[in-house]
Design a binder for these strands. Structure first.
Lengths: 407, 407
DNA sequence: ACTAAATAATAAATTTTTTTATTAAATGTT
DNA sequence: AACATTTAATAAAAAAATTTATTATTTAGT
């Protein structure tokens, strides 16, 4: 029971065999992405006649790649059989790497999460040891999962910073040699490996099973420690020439003289991001502001999670004030992008999505003020639905869609 | 000799006939867009066998839609016949409407310009008379061209402002009734009509036969009277949800208290655009600055064309200074977009492309300073090649590609 | 100039796909 | 409950496309 034979396209196969293979691919893709379906529907969808589709569905059943899920109800007439992908036929692996933790998820062929390990303790550092440790964690997860490696179609690893997914290069982390990072990891985990920018993977998660319904043009704002963006355009991920699209945080907007992580000054990220929030709160506390957080003797030790909990659990006024300011700044910048992109949907995601109640209103107000009316009317706002699972889920869908040649 | 029969897809045609029609469409599209080709090549391109392609090419020859252009040279072996679209089989019409003139072009099926009328005197005003006048001009052009109307696949009319090309609505000009503007014009000129945003059409012109070579992600900056942008993404025009993408000029960047044409204050367009240039030059002249333009007794009467000629013909220092300032401001904003889009190419087009020598360097300098290094390295700069013909040429290509269902 | 190798085009044979006809299974109406 | 209607699935006949074989043209090498 393996579909790999469908995807070794050796050179000298005759045209007719190629067409059969392609149609089979189409059927597998349709059943994986679109879910269960009947022969008459698949016939319409693919443009091939019912006997042809029937024959191939028979072969796929024989091969164990799909299952017959029995007759389904209709409004009238003989009831058709519904066929769907065998959940056990293949799997997708998603890995989200943050500064302090790794989250790994395994998805079955029918897009169900079969295993997820959240927040495995890990320290992301830009050295070989850290990379080796990451591979060890992934290998341990796969071994524990009891899914044979050859059934795992591929793994997608999400990292922050500049990622060229097409070539497999990461420039901000683990750029030690001329070989693509994806190949280095691939040889260590023995599973086809892709790498992806974290914001983009989160975006793809929300797009496939999050808040995105039918929207084709979407901006996903990832406010976590840094500030990133993922873009859905023409109904698919937008990469740009080399995959550096969405570098949202480093717009030169402020004269604040604060040095950004990118090396420049006055970036949007210095005013709108997790670390900006932490810095601002600490500054205010040091200059005597009171807050739920004031009870901390050591101001230095305060971290974002504590600030978020102060907002969510205690409606901390100081933090809410800072968040509202941040929302206004974000909204003003988003207004420009909205004018350029004319999106249908803007999603607030990332760690700070937890406090989006306080961000969203100022964002929307600023956006309304600074963007063109007609363009602004098209935009809806939503908060991420998948939360901190968006990354892994998205990564699994990226593997799936790369496998099917859609990305 | 008409290909229309291929495109009336009535409902109850059998599957096999549909497939033949689709393959014929593919062949016509390939020969129109890709140019002349041989049967073996077309076979590889379409994935159909040589005898099948041979049969259909025979039919298309019979129908007069394509021509046999004779044997072509190869490196070895029997020489194949080359087939190409009959230039006379169908035509595309492009219409560019500016504040003060209309330019109309007619393109043959093999993408050659067969007739162009540039700068027909016209005054764009937002009333029904102005619209009627426009239709009269188009009708006169078609009559004079001696190409039968039914051979004109369609016309694309370019206008400034918010255009929803999909629905055919224009909101900034000629929005008089609930009916789409495209239908109104269509019934007056008796040719299938599309409307398009001017910057977008210009972008498509440059993309198809201008400075764009193989770049898939392109930003086209249209600096004319106003400031607009066209975007090529994933190798095609980007529209956004309703077709309002590229509203470049109305980013709220300045505290200059100048009222923009959009009704808001401090828009980029108030500092970077043809009218900004005119305003700034006039202000400086009024406060006593000297320039080639000083000899004009009536400062009010100075227009952009005079300023451009002062720069091009006399290297006017005052105007060049203003242009360099504008370039810096434009570059700073472009830096943000480049970070988000990661384009391969940025094109300076529109009326002010004539003085791009003085814009480009400050734009590039500012862009380098304010964008991320890795992203900035991907960007190349070019000046529009088609100049003031970009709009009509692009409009023709838009008709062509809408006809073939590519847009 | 002759011959081998390469590519194109055509013809005949084979395979694949579709069409049409038939049977099966379900719903709803009189 | 019988029957018309609808949709699905299968079988046999017909059509279409591909494969293989053959012929035609051209280049390059001896």
């Amino acid at each position: 029971m393996s579909i790999s034979f469908l995807f070794n396209n050796s050179d000298n196969i005759p045209l007719s065999a190629l067409k059969t293979i392609n149609l089979k691919k189409d059927l597998i893709r349709s059943l994986t992405i679109g879910g269960e379906n009947t022969i008459p529907n698949l016939s319409k969808e693919t443009g091939y006649s019912i006997p042809t589709v029937t024959k191939l569905i028979g072969e796929l059943l024989e091969e164990g790649i799909i299952h017959d899920f029995g007759k389904i109800d209709t409004t009238g007439g003989r009831r058709p059989s519904s066929y769907g992908i065998n959940p056990n036929a293949f799997y997708f692996l998603g890995v989200e790497v943050t500064r302090t933790a790794v989250t790994i998820g395994l998805q079955s062929a029918d897009n169900k999460n079969v295993k997820i390990s959240e927040n495995i303790l890990y320290s992301l550092e830009n050295n070989r040891e850290s990379l080796d440790k990451l591979c060890d964690i992934i290998n341990f997860f796969i071994d524990e999962s009891e899914v044979p490696r050859k059934k795992i179609i591929g793994a997608c690893i999400n990292l922050t910073g500049r990622i060229n997914s097409r070539e497999g290069f990461s420039y901000s982390f683990f750029y030690f040699e001329e070989k693509p990072l994806s190949s280095i990891i691939e040889s260590k985990i023995r599973v086809k490996t892709y790498i992806e920018n974290d914001s983009r993977a989160m975006t793809y998660g929300e797009y496939n099973c999050g808040v995105v319904k039918n929207e084709q043009e979407v901006l996903f704002v990832n406010i976590s420690w840094g500030l990133g963006m993922g873009i859905i355009c023409k109904g698919g991920l937008y990469y740009g020439k080399s995959g550096y699209s969405g570098e949202f945080g480093h717009a030169p907007l402020f004269d604040n003289d604060i040095l950004c992580q990118c090396g420049k000054k006055g970036c949007l990220e210095t005013e709108v991001s997790g670390w900006a929030l932490e810095r601002k709160i600490k500054e205010k506390l040091r200059s005597g502001a009171t807050s739920v957080l004031s009870k901390n003797k050591n101001i230095d030790s305060i971290n974002i999670n504590q600030i978020i909990s102060a907002v969510v659990d205690h409606e901390d006024v100081l933090a809410i004030e800072v968040l509202e300011e941040m929302g206004e700044k974000l909204g003003r910048y988003l207004a420009m992008l909205v004018n350029i992109f004319n999106p249908e949907l803007v999603i607030i995601g990332g760690t700070l999505a937890a406090v989006s109640d306080y961000l969203q209103l100022p964002v929307q107000t600023a956006l309304k003020r600074y963007s063109l009316n007609l363009v602004n009317q098209d935009v809806r706002f939503k908060t991420s639905k998948l939360g901190d699972k968006a990354g892994v889920v998205g990564a699994c869908y990226i593997v799936r869609d790369r496998f099917f040649g859609l990305i």
